[in-house]
């Protein structure tokens, strides 16, 4: 028998599915309770990008965004997943509108949560105006959903990471789960190097890119709120944990967040590398952090959080 193929959802409904390798639809169907996912505007409806024909580019029947509803640990949720392999998971008009619609629907149906499985390089250049507008509309809709008490959790561990407008949206979420493979930033490595020079950021230094933007550093800095191993079960457990301790979304919470960011900048602002940051945090072997297995890394996060009350 051949090995299960990641694009075939029925082969492995168990959750030992590799998050990084799985398709958007496969991540969603295995993350949610078995058989509960119902897709809105699925591929048979063929709601495709109206712009890609102009550039003689192939379309995808779901425009790289899978949205729908389902059950998560028995509770009703809305969920969306980006397909990072189609145009880098980038936001175009339809792609973005599907997420806007889902988040606005949350105001009516008041699900227990909205789960957003990010996998994006940012805005699709071929439909950039529509994509940028979509980013703004998504942030507004996301914050509106949070304002009525619906938590919006972002899950990041795909091959495109979460960049550009996707990085901005992730910053609006109630909480983020990230794996080691999940990079989070606004400007990508090449963009920074192009604008600020190779001495500012060497995009070809992969180790530098990963220890700066990768999931471990983002978790240690408090950008992400939970760390998952690279499999669906681990993402599910971390998401459940975040949902179990809901956060307030009010002026006091925003002030506390602002204070955290200011003190983080004051404490680490003069560091020139993530390794310096980790050393200041108190990691015994800062250069060894990228090689730590998940359980040892989780222990480090817990110890640092305890010592600094973060």
């Amino acid at each position: 028998m051949s090995a299960p193929h990641p694009d075939i959802p029925h082969v492995a409904e168990a959750r030992n599915v590799d998050w990084y390798e799985a398709s958007a639809r496969h991540r969603l169907t295995t993350l949610l309770d078995h058989g509960s996912f119902i897709e809105f505007m699925g591929p048979t409806e063929r709601v495709v990008s109206p712009h890609l024909d102009l550039f003689d580019l192939p379309k995808q029947f779901d425009d790289g965004m899978v949205v729908g509803r389902g059950q998560f640990d028995g509770k009703p949720v809305l969920a969306a997943a980006q397909e990072g392999r189609f145009m880098g998971g980038a936001f175009g008009e339809v792609h973005g509108a599907k997420l806007v619609g889902l988040l606005r629907a949350a105001l009516d149906v008041k699900p227990d949560a909205v789960l957003v499985l990010f996998d994006t390089g940012g805005v699709r250049l071929q439909e950039a105006n529509a994509g940028e507008l979509a980013i703004a509309e998504i942030m507004r809709a996301l914050l509106d959903a949070r304002a009525v008490g619906v938590p919006v959790i972002g899950l990041i561990g795909g091959r495109a990471g979460c960049y550009g407008g996707g990085g901005l949206i992730s910053g609006c979420c109630s909480g983020l789960v990230v794996s080691e493979q999940g990079r989070i930033s606004v400007s990508g490595p090449e963009v920074i190097e192009t604008n600020r020079g190779v001495e500012e950021f060497d995009s070809r230094d992969r180790a530098l890119v990963w220890r700066t933007m990768g999931g471990k550093n983002r978790r240690l800095l408090g950008v992400a709120d939970a760390y998952a191993d690279d499999d669906v079960e681990s993402f599910r457990a971390a998401t459940l944990e975040l949902l179990a301790s809901p956060r307030a979304f009010d002026l006091d919470a925003l002030k506390a967040r602002q204070h955290m960011l200011e003190s983080r900048l004051a404490r680490f602002g003069d560091c020139s590398d993530a390794i310096d940051v980790w050393a200041k945090m108190g990691a015994e072997q800062p250069t060894g952090v990228p090689d730590l297995p998940a359980d040892a890394f989780q222990a480090l996060v817990a110890r640092i959080a305890k010592e600094h009350g973060a």
């Binding site: 075939i8 699925g42 591929p43 048979t44 995808q60 029947f61 397909e83 189609f86």
Partner: peptide, 16 residues
């Protein structure tokens, strides 16, 4: 009633 496999990417395709 339906099935979908693959992704539209370089050297790849989706089949609905």
């Amino acid at each position: 009633p339906m099935a979908i496999v693959g992704v539209v990417a370089s050297g790849n395709l989706e089949v609905l």
